[in-house]
């Protein structure tokens, strides 16, 4: 039983669609088409000479051990960021949802970091964990932990994961809060009367009912970790030391903007595009089945 609204002419629906189509065309299809076209070319920085090289950019990128290593870094980075950001946000949302004094103040504080620009967030973390001038960096060194993310690749990766996850917690928090508020209180109360403890109530009632929200957030967080963490990495480590924090998106930037290697950068963008399309398709196909709306 679906109500259908039918427009009389063809002009009005097109007119209403037009702004969205224009924006998608100009800001998505045009650049994406350019990227695909550019990935078959090899040209100098100034665009004075170009050469069609077929799939050579792709074969070269895929044969590069540094590219494969950065793919592996991306896997670790993205899963850690998504997991940490989701887990922390869920925990905080459940806590803030309880009847506590000053809940609104907590909520505001927790949403705050979302308004911080990625580069500024990175600088905040830099000031905390810089081995020489950072508060925690100095403390760690003082306690005998050899903390130096500028030279230790694992520590550098840990730092960018924490900074990137922290940035995303607020966003997840808002959605989890909204999800929690839509869970009927009567169900929880009934369970409580039946003698279910808080932990049991969480895992058997709240968590399953939050599944649609969690699934949506999982997709969003993976996409965030893949594409939007560029500013954080750039400001914190610049992809180093070695290439310990160079993720795929960061490598696209380095090769395209810094090294002016457009063909290779375009090929990497296309590969990245394919990965994210696949990832999202897989998520919708397999995980969505287990989600009950």
């Amino acid at each position: 039983m679906r109500k259908k609204v039918i427009f009389k002419g063809i002009a009005l629906p097109w007119l209403l669609l037009l702004p969205q189509l224009l924006i998608t065309g100009v800001f998505f299809f045009w650049p994406a088409g350019q990227a695909i076209y550019g990935s078959f070319l090899r040209e100098d920085a100034f665009g004075l000479s170009r050469q069609f090289v077929g799939l050579e950019n792709f074969t070269e990128v895929l044969a590069d051990p540094n590219y494969l290593a950065s793919g592996w870094t991306t896997v670790i980075f993205s899963t850690s960021v998504a997991f940490l950001a989701l887990a922390a946000a869920l925990y905080l949302a459940v806590q803030a949802d309880k009847a506590i004094r000053g809940a609104n103040a907590y909520k505001t504080m927790l949403i705050w970091p979302y308004a911080v620009a990625p580069a500024i967030a990175a600088v905040l973390w830099l000031f905390m964990f810089h081995p020489q001038i950072g508060l925690f960096g100095r403390m760690l060194n003082g306690l005998g932990v050899p903390w130096d993310y500028k030279l230790n690749g694992d520590q550098a990766l840990l730092l960018v994961i924490l900074a990137a996850a922290w940035k995303q917690v607020s966003y997840n928090f808002i959605f989890f809060m909204a999800g929690l508020q839509s869970i009927p209180k009567s169900v929880l109360e009934a369970a409580a009367i039946d003698g279910a403890r808080p932990m049991r109530r969480f895992w058997t009632i709240i968590f399953p009912l939050l599944a649609p929200t969690s699934f949506f957030l999982l997709v969003v967080n993976i996409v965030y970790a893949f594409f939007d963490t560029f500013g954080t990495i750039h400001a914190l480590t610049g992809g180093g030391p070695g290439q310990a924090t160079t993720t795929l998106i960061y490598k696209v930037y380095v090769d395209g903007v810094q090294n002016l290697n457009f063909g290779s950068s375009a090929a990497q963008s296309v590969i990245l595009m394919v990965i994210v399309i696949l990832l999202t398709a897989v998520q919708f196909r397999f995980i969505e089945r287990k989600v009950h709306y």
Binding site: P31, Q34, V257
Partner: peptide
């Protein structure tokens, strides 16, 4: 590549 177009 996206960035380049944006820059242009």
């Amino acid at each position: 590549m996206f960035r380049r177009t944006l820059m242009a």
